[in-house]
Design a protein around this nucleic acid. Sequence first.
RNA 1: GGGCGUAUAGCUCAGUCGGCUAGAGCGCACGCUUCACACGCGUGAGGUCACAGGUUCGAGCCCUGUUACGCCCACCA
Length: 873
Amino acid sequence: MTDIQTPDLSTPTTPDRRAVVVPDKPALEGLETKWGERWKADDTYKFDRTQPREKVYSIDTPPPTVSGSLHVGHVFSYTHTDLIARFQRMTGKAVFYPMGWDDNGLPTERRVQNYYGVRCDPSLPYNPDFTPPEKPDPKKQVPVDRPNFVKLCEALAEEDETVFESLFNTLGLSVDWSLAYTTVGPRAQTISQRAFLRNFARGEAYLQEAPTVWDVTDQTAVAQAEIEAREYPGHYHRVAFHRPDGEPVHIETTRPELIPAVVALIAHPDDERYQPLFGTTVTSPIFGVEIPVVAHHAAEMEKGAGIAMCCTFGDLTDVMWWRELQLPVRTVVGRDGRLHRETPAWLTDGAAATAYAELAGKTIFSAREAMVGLLRESGDLDGEPTPTTRMANFYERGDKPLEIVATRQWYLRNGGRDRELRQEMLDHGTEITWLPAHMKHRFDNWVGGLNGDWLISRQRFFGIPFPVWYPLDADGEPDYDHPLLPSEAELPIDPSTDAPHGYDESQRGKPGGFAGDPDVMDTWATSSLTPHIAGGWSVDDDLFGRVFPMDLCTQAHEIIRTWLFSRVVRAHFENGVTPWTHAMLSGWILDPNRKKMSKSKGNAVVPTDILEKFGADAVRWRAAAVRPGMDSPFDETQMKVGRRLAMKVLNASKFVLGSVGATNPTASAVAEQVDVALIGRLAGVITKATEAFEAYDYTGALEAIEKFFWEFCDDYLELVKERAYAEDGGPATDSARAALALALHVQLRLLAPYLPYVTEEVWSWWQDGSVHLAAWPTSTDLGAAGAADGSMIDAVASALTGIRGAKSQAKVSMRAELSRVEIGGPEALVAAARQAESDLRQAGKITGELVFTPGDGDELTVAAELAEATPAS
RNA sequence: GGGCGUAUAGCUCAGUCGGCUAGAGCGCACGCUUCACACGCGUGAGGUCACAGGUUCGAGCCCUGUUACGCCCACCA
């Protein structure tokens, strides 16, 4: 980046001490506001879009669902991304770090429904004077037309976005807010619709009528990726079907209400019990429908009675049987989760029709009860239903088991039905560096287990509409085989309000006219394009060429199958590439009982509270201690430790720059042995931290930096402060001051990604510009001393520890004077300690003799005598 | 059922290529009103590296098996 400042430390950078302004009582309070405003005013994190791709570091930031609330887990994982962003920025990259808001889709609809107490009814005409109810009554939601409902969604999402932005700013994310995008705004609409049109033109998107997993609560189709299996209580019912000779064939089912939908009984071809029945028919109980008995290898002999009733459709196995055995369709469950009110054609016989009337229009649950009653009366129920717990599929946000309903939906190919494409998807996975590496298994596992293409249409309201109309024939029936499409230049369009070419609005819904596709795209169908939306694909191709494919995607591991995979699919079709080189997965923040924090469990910690209590730097420090993919229990005591570090940075800096007046980080002035060793040690820290950061190991980098910092404060600073203080100390004082200033200059930059506020505060005391635009330190900053062996400082530090230990054991103040100190141990260590003789004498308050006695052993030993003037406790 | 991860001090975690007596912070104990910091400083105690077996001169680390906890996927007869 052009405005990164590479320091020239060969000459003094701050010659005038009066230019250094150190506050008397530095404090952490208020730093977030002070520097947050400054960074905003100065555009500190603005992306430099003049840079070529190789000088750019681009990040595909997860757009949070604005209808939810942010919790500590978000705070941690977004901090992880920011650590990488700040490091890359300091190494000279132009960092493309946008923020997105996922305001599209069902979560926002639900929040609007609850917040305003309304319900979308798309059949209502637009009411320009609509205002939401003053007091929402969750039990009596007011019906509202679709345009107004969408307006409410947009308004509430915007409110939520403001709150989120404020939190992210307090946290210190170095996002370029001018790059912010939403997943439902005009740009997202244009890009989603354009990508869809191109997918359609290439045959990657297609419309198909097929059995679909369906949520009866929200009345929409649901994709495989949004399904989760949960335990669900039910009962086994042992039910008799009847052979022509009158003998019963018992099956077991948990769903007796589907008996009117039975199309076959199926057993395994090797099952000797049922082999005689294959090719014959039986009749269903109650309804007397003739049902074939057939063989299929997927039937399991051990399960239930060993023979299954196949209905259209009870589960995905039924769908497979129906398809492979070419069975008829007999649907009884409607989209509203109730049994059809009209008597199905195959049940029109007198007795069957009478029985079906008992079920018609009932919910699945009530129909099941009624059916059990009928079976009991007819004697076809063998024994009583026995309780069982089985796994059932649920929409991840739903609370009723999913049904399977035949509907017409849009699909996007994803390898689920195409071996070659599936392999290409797996190949993309190998091109990503997974952090941690084992997360790749999740991706491979998911892609390998796909059982169909990606269902992208939803029968909902707040989302991006499909840019498609259908011509209506003379009977007013849509011709789905010849959809009408807009040109790309017309996008975005809404087929419910815009008319297709060659038609006008008066022909909507009329025979010979047209009808708009009523569906919207699934939220993942839009968010699968976040690199394209953020990067300006097709609307700002100059920008897109500079940022795509991206360097990093960061996200939670549970959405590898949705967000991560779907972006791989879209980038594959649209650009023929893998969308990023690195994927960094975050773990979870657990409560003290090691359970995942979630609002619904009431164990979530509100992020604004902890930011307020400990400060952003402290919270970030704690987040940085959690490696990618690792879960971590939330622990306030750890936040305190981060806060202590931030305070220490303030106080140590105040001391170095203020009292000592060490403000010239001049490498060439570092001459004394201890000072040289310190700088030599620092060179190793720079190397280690840089290598760790380059491997995305921000935790390892922090460990090295922090360890050095504490030793710098506790040992080095204590050791040299008298020498550095000296009014006319000559070269020895100059050396200490130069080393202190240089070490501080480097350490502030090393700590800047972790503690952006406190490092910026200190930086402002004595340097121009922002520390966040300063160059990441390198060993060349350190001059000749950087090449020195730092190990002698260990011997000096352990001598100092020995001296302190003697005082501590005697229970006297560290200021207590010593009349005699003898340092012994291995010759090399004693000699090393001796090189700091003068510093040790001053730091240890040794008024008498200090003797160095090389000898045996493998550790430095210190024997000390208290001066008589000092009273022992 | 398939896949993955974790297990080291009371707690949270490091532990590189297998190599001296296994480390850090917190907490705890004992001290210190120290002229940068009491939102502080110093010193110290604290370990059957989950279990069993194997390889090796040598295993926290490698191999085999077991247990516990957690996660992903599949599972509606």
